[in-house]
Simulated assay, not measured.
Amino acid sequence: MTGETASPVVLFDLDDTLMAHREAVATGILRHMRERAYEGDERAAAGRWHELEEEHYTAYLEGALSFEGQRRARAAAFAREFGDELDERAASAWFAEYFRHYRDSWALHDDVLPALDALATALPRVRLGIVTNGELEFQTAKIVRLALHGRVEHVIASGELGIAKPDPGIFHEALDRFARTGPVSAAAYVGDRLRTDAIGAARAGLVGVWLNRHGVRPPDDEAAEAIDVGVVEIHRLDELAARLVPRLG
């Protein structure tokens, strides 16, 4: 590869960065509630389902639950609050029914495709990839369904590596894969979680970009750390190209 021109690499988180995951989750659980004839405050129920996802998916990432196990645990805990007791088999079936509604609601955020086009224009040699905390097969299915597979060169998932963001190893593995087919001049990572995505990437030597879609104010210690490692904050992906050109161009 001697003499090849080096290219910038921009890596993205998937859920809630490119894909409107939280919206799909809320739509999916509300449709499933109606199908199961669960009665109650739907807004509160959607919030509770999100809390259970955070709790049990974190347990999966930490190795305390299997991927299927965290699904069953979420289903059983949620159903129990409506007086519906589920054993393991019933919990798996319950989650499969919910998942059908969730999958049917998968969609990109409306700023994704224009942002990718703007990056390609502003940085003509840019190469794109996805680094995600999850199972490779599951996350790849989303990428294909959302028609992103033709735009990204590599998808790196924590499930295949046994390490998850913010561990620097997952970011380094991503860059190693790009480097095997051409030199990398500089790299950035874009994600919706400040510590897991942006600070983690910055600690690994990339430009860390925090996509703060909802204007969240982080805890003081995280805000100070973000400043210390040079995290770039944006509120929509429309802002990305202009913020990255001075750093990657």
Score class of each variant (00 low, 15 high):
Gly3Trp: 05
Ala6Lys: 11
Ala6Phe: 09
Leu11Asn: 06
Leu11Val: 02
Arg22Phe: 03
His32Thr: 09
Met33Val: 09
Arg34Ser: 12
Glu35Pro: 05
Glu35Lys: 10
Ala37Val: 12
Ala37Pro: 06
Arg43Gly: 15
Ala44Gln: 14
Ala45Arg: 01
His50Asn: 13
His50Cys: 08
Tyr57Ala: 08
Gly63His: 00
Ser66Thr: 15
Phe67Gln: 12
Glu68Gln: 13
Gly69Ala: 10
Arg71Thr: 00
Ala73Asp: 09
Ala75Asn: 03
Ala75Gly: 04
Ala76Ser: 06
Glu85Phe: 00
Phe95His: 14
His109Lys: 04
Val112Gly: 14
Ala115Val: 02
Leu116Trp: 10
Ala118Asn: 10
Leu119Val: 10
Leu119Asn: 11
Val126Cys: 10
Leu128Lys: 13
Ile130Gln: 09
Val131Tyr: 01
Gly134Leu: 02
Glu137Tyr: 03
Thr140Gly: 07
Arg145Tyr: 07
Leu148Tyr: 04
Leu148Ser: 03
Glu160Arg: 02
Asp167Leu: 01
Gly169Phe: 01
Phe171Leu: 05
Asp176Ala: 14
Pro183Gly: 03
Tyr189His: 14
Thr196Pro: 06
Ala201Cys: 06
Ala202Tyr: 00
Val209Ile: 09
Trp210Tyr: 06
Arg213Ser: 14
Val216Glu: 14
Glu222Asp: 15
Ile227Glu: 15
Asp228Met: 08
Val229Asp: 08
Leu240Cys: 13
Val245Asn: 07
Arg247Gly: 06
